[in-house]
Simulated scan of single mutants.
Amino acid sequence: MSVYHAGSRAIQDQAGVRDRADHVGRSLGQDIKPVAAAFLEQQPLLIVGAADPETGRVWASALTGAPGFVRVTGPRRISVSTTTGPHPNDGPIGVGTIALDPRTRRRMRLNGRLRPTATGFTVEADQVFSNCPRHIQRWESYETVDRTPGIPRHLTELGDEEADFIRSADTFFLATVHGAGADASHRGGNPGFVEVTSPRELTWPDYPGNAMFLSLGNLRTDPRAGLLFLDWDTGTTLQLTGEARTEFARDGARTVRFTFTEALWTPAAVPLRWSAPEYSPANPDAAR
């Protein structure tokens, strides 16, 4: 059975990469191998994407903890210790996760069914896979700092501060959904690769990647999406939820256009401070 649904297949065919996608798709499995377990348990940061069961809006969020706060507790299960997340009485939801180690430019994605627990949640894996380091910036080191998160500020439009924050970003995370669950992915480029085209709209180029088109395939069948921008120095986060669509140029280039309905700005949300980045050599030049 194919690991891809109809949305991803349609984008693969449009891009002419179905054979390559089939080859890459063989790396997707359900079991968490020992090397993947060791990687997960070393990380202080986990990105989680899902649809809010009450509103249906899709959000991407950053969870942090001392290495080991994400543990592999079964052949296909991770357990996350956190005070942030669904209430233990809530039912299971489809979720996408991504663990990213900027020091080594490695990333690992695990998608499945989240079930709340008394100490956080578990995820039973449907898909486990790693991606190449393309467009991941390298941060040599990080430190944990004592920060008190600021009061989250809800936005319906971007002001100058938020727009400049996005324009200066070299990384963000994208959450998308489909009928069977959710997915969280990484997007990277030189500062300026994300454009603010209006107080409620962003665009970014879809750079060539692994040819799976999981995110764009999801958007083809369900336009709901969530974005997370993170300041790797101050820990400030900007989360946006809305809808996205992919535009195709005659030369095959792809641009994603995102319109948001709600945003959440939280100063000092993440208690991690990373060193200055070394931009990926795969990044195309971007307007600054």
Results as ranks from 00 to 15, higher is better:
Asn210His: 01
Asn210Gln: 15
Ala211Thr: 12
Met212Ser: 14
Leu214His: 14
Ser215Gln: 04
Ser215Thr: 08
Ser215Arg: 05
Leu216Lys: 13
Leu216Glu: 05
Leu216Cys: 11
Leu216Pro: 00
Leu216Met: 09
Gly217Pro: 10
Gly217Asn: 13
Asn218Cys: 07
Asn218Thr: 14
Leu219Glu: 04
Leu219Cys: 07
Arg220Leu: 09
Asp222Cys: 11
Asp222Met: 03
Asp222Ala: 02
Pro223Gln: 12
Pro223Asp: 11
Pro223Tyr: 06
Arg224His: 04
Ala225Phe: 01
Ala225Lys: 00
Ala225Asp: 06
Gly226Ser: 13
Gly226Thr: 02
Gly226Phe: 04
Gly226Asp: 06
Gly226Arg: 06
Leu227Glu: 00
Leu228His: 15
Leu228Cys: 10
Phe229Ile: 02
Asp231Pro: 03
Asp231Cys: 07
Trp232Gly: 09
Asp233Ser: 10
Asp233Phe: 08
Asp233Gln: 12
Thr234Glu: 07
Gly235Met: 08
Gly235Asp: 02
Gly235Asn: 13
Thr236Gly: 06
Thr236Pro: 03
Thr236Tyr: 04
Thr236Arg: 13
Thr237Tyr: 04
Thr237Val: 01
Leu238Ser: 03
Leu238Cys: 09
Leu238Pro: 05
Leu238Ile: 01
Gln239Pro: 05
Leu240Pro: 08
Leu240Cys: 08
Thr241Gly: 13
Thr241Ile: 12
Thr241Gln: 09
Gly242Val: 11
Gly242Gln: 04
Gly242Cys: 02
Glu243Leu: 05
Glu243Tyr: 10
Ala244His: 04
Ala244Asn: 03
Arg245Leu: 05
Arg245Ala: 04
Phe248Arg: 12
Phe248Tyr: 14
Ala249Asp: 14
Ala249Thr: 13
Asp251Asn: 14
Asp251Phe: 07
Gly252Thr: 01
Ala253Leu: 13
Ala253Tyr: 10
Arg254Leu: 09
Arg254Gly: 05
Thr255Phe: 08
Val256Met: 08
Val256Glu: 06
Phe258Tyr: 02
Phe258Ser: 02
Thr259Asn: 13
Thr259Ile: 11
Phe260Val: 00
Phe260Arg: 03
Thr261Tyr: 15
Thr261Glu: 12
Glu262Pro: 12
Ala263Leu: 08
Ala263Asp: 06
Ala263Trp: 03
Trp265Met: 13
Trp265Gln: 09
Trp265Gly: 09
Trp265Asn: 12
Thr266Cys: 15
Pro267Ser: 13
Ala268His: 07
Ala268Glu: 00
Ala269Lys: 11
Val270Leu: 01
Val270Ile: 10
Val270Glu: 00
Val270Cys: 00
Val270Trp: 00
Pro271Arg: 15
Pro271Phe: 06
Pro271Gln: 12
Leu272Phe: 13
Arg273Met: 00
Trp274Ser: 15
Trp274Tyr: 08
Ser275His: 00
Ala276Lys: 05
Ala276His: 11
Pro277Lys: 01
Glu278Thr: 09
Glu278Asp: 13
Glu278Gly: 07
Ser280Ala: 06
Ser280Asp: 03
Pro281Met: 06
Pro281Gln: 03
Pro281Ala: 12
Ala282Pro: 04
Ala282Asp: 11
Ala282His: 07
Ala282Phe: 15
Asn283Gln: 05
Asn283Arg: 00
Asn283Thr: 01
Asn283Asp: 10
Pro284Ala: 15
Pro284Lys: 03
Pro284His: 04
Asp285Ser: 07
